[in-house]
Amino acid sequence: MTNFTLPNAKHYFDPLEQFDVIQLFPSISYALTNLTLILFLNLLIFGFLIYATIYPNQSHSTSPSVVGDLVRNVYEMLATLAESNIRLSKQVYFPILFYIFLLILISNLVGMIPFSYTVTSSFVFTFYIALALFTGINLIGIYQHAYSIFAFGVPTGSPLILAPLIAAVEFISYFSRIFSLSIRLFANMMAGHTLLKILIGFS
């Protein structure tokens, strides 16, 4: 049979190799992997974007700040989104939307850099985000509405005799939101990057 003499032949032919989580310094830290490293890099980029928006460079005050305009445009886009979707007089939940959007966007875009790592292509990360947001949203609902939070289980106008059946179906669909939310993001990123690597391998 064929005998590969290359030391790491897997690294040249496997399009799924880019999703491996590697421990960078196993002797020093157990938890420091390429995933956490790139995640901290993403958070640094996020912090830089916010800092550059709040404190623009004073020496070039006549020229517009490119980063600031970019972040401000994203802010206004998300503000209109929140205005149209969340029917509250005060948009108190806007900051979490802004933070999640920028974090996922930066993670996706940093993943496009060759030899980088796409944090959102690992299921544990997207699942954690979706689960944490779902738990937090439900805690807010329980805090504000107490037991009447379970009103989502029975839509208005449904016949009372069908209520147990509808409640069961609604509960299943309600909890499958976590999986639909996380698997959509993870599968899109993973499929896209695998396809890119395969297409690049043809050249």
């Binding site: 998300l78 979707n85 029917r87 959007f101 966007l105 939070i149 899109n188 890119l196």
Partner: peptide, 30 residues
């Protein structure tokens, strides 16, 4: 390659839209 950038932005947008819908579901009960 360009498609991948579009997907990257679209997925972040979709995620935020769905989260805002879920927040609306819970905060504004019918």
């Amino acid at each position: 390659m360009g498609l991948e950038f579009v997907i990257a932005m679209l997925q972040a947008y979709v995620f935020v839209v769905l989260i805002s819908l879920y927040i609306n579901d819970v905060v504004v009960l019918h």
